[in-house]
Amino acid sequence: MNKTVLKSMEIIQLFFDEEQQTLQEIVEKTNLPKTSAYRMAESLYELGFLQKSDEGAYKLGLLFLQLGHLVSERLEIRKVALPIMNELKKETGEAVNLIIREKEEAIYIEKVDTTEHVRVYTQIGRRAPLYAGACPRILLTFLPDKEREEFINRAMIKKYADGTIVDKDTLRQMLAESREKEYSISHSELENYSSAVAAPIFDHMGKVIAGISLVGPEVRFQDEAHVESLIIRLKQSAEEISKHMGWKGE
């Protein structure tokens, strides 16, 4: 692969975790010579991939917003799911997230925010490990057995919050339970004091292609009867989206 392209991508990836990067920070994090880092950053700036703050620090350019919008618009499942997500939010009052799998991560591709004053904020484009959180884990739950086990064996499990499942045998047990019930639930796994319930979305082949979740502060997910009602409504929405994607209910 072209080394210049790879290094340019390495610079861009620095902005996944930090909003801004100075030239010196880019040099330190990429181990590029300062002149090379400057030339690459300035080229990315000229092309619109980066922009500059008033202080001269680099940040992602608006071109990414345009490209991201095009990608989102072209994802059929997003178009199908959004009106159903809006209706789900109206009925439950909780935020709704839609995710898909990208390699060994889950990526959030659509959301509908709650109107509640206390909420859990999720950003479109956010990535999460498949083992943590109800929605990412529902994707892992329905991977083929061999693929799922291979992922668990090689995963370097990181603790994101107080409730993150770090024991692999416990994870396997939870996946088996989620597969049987066809939903997953999490408390303080990706962020403390947040909870979520998630259900799978299937395509015409019966393959899970996405996950949909209701998410909110943990305090609103304590009453069992309330959570059960959320799960029932969530699974109905997941089934509706699945049928639009060609699933026959098998």
Score class of each variant (00 low, 15 high):
96 V>Q: 07
232 I>K: 09
189 E>W: 02
104 E>D: 07
221 F>G: 10
231 I>F: 13
26 I>L: 09
67 L>E: 11
101 R>D: 01
49 F>H: 01
200 P>R: 14
182 E>D: 11
126 R>M: 05
61 G>D: 07
192 N>C: 02
219 V>S: 09
135 C>G: 05
98 L>F: 01
222 Q>R: 11
22 T>W: 01
159 K>Q: 09
113 D>G: 04
177 E>G: 01
97 N>H: 00
239 E>A: 13
15 F>E: 04
171 L>M: 13
88 L>N: 12
98 L>C: 01
220 R>L: 10
94 E>H: 07
135 C>T: 09
207 K>W: 08
3 K>Y: 14
59 K>Q: 14
43 S>T: 11
206 G>Q: 01
99 I>Y: 04
69 H>W: 10
59 K>S: 12
188 S>I: 03
123 Q>F: 00
142 F>L: 10
108 Y>E: 13
88 L>R: 15
169 D>V: 10
250 E>I: 15
180 E>A: 07
85 M>P: 01
186 S>Y: 03
160 Y>V: 08
92 T>S: 13
226 H>S: 12
27 V>W: 15
195 S>V: 03
27 V>L: 13
144 P>I: 06
52 K>R: 10
153 N>T: 05
172 R>G: 06
194 S>E: 04
131 Y>N: 03
75 L>E: 03
79 K>R: 10
147 E>I: 09
12 I>P: 02
216 G>Q: 03
40 M>R: 09
156 M>K: 14
94 E>R: 07
178 S>H: 06
108 Y>A: 12
15 F>V: 00
76 E>K: 07
242 S>H: 05
68 G>T: 13
242 S>I: 05
91 E>W: 05
110 E>D: 08
221 F>D: 14
16 F>N: 11
33 P>F: 09
41 A>P: 05
82 L>Y: 00
104 E>Q: 03
151 F>Y: 15
243 K>H: 12
219 V>R: 15
206 G>M: 00
103 K>P: 03
32 L>M: 10
30 T>W: 10
71 V>L: 08
70 L>D: 12
182 E>M: 15
11 I>V: 07
167 D>Q: 12
48 G>C: 00
104 E>G: 01
119 R>C: 00
47 L>C: 04
6 L>Y: 15
54 D>G: 12
97 N>D: 05
160 Y>H: 13
110 E>L: 03
112 V>P: 02
71 V>F: 02
105 E>F: 10
203 D>K: 03
108 Y>G: 09
79 K>L: 01
137 R>C: 02
63 L>R: 06
238 A>G: 13
5 V>I: 15
176 A>I: 05
218 E>I: 11
234 L>T: 01
14 L>M: 07
173 Q>R: 09
161 A>E: 13
75 L>R: 02
93 G>A: 14
130 L>P: 01
136 P>T: 02
187 H>M: 12
191 E>G: 02
34 K>C: 10
48 G>Y: 02
241 I>T: 06
144 P>H: 10
46 E>G: 05
224 E>A: 11
106 A>F: 08
17 D>G: 10
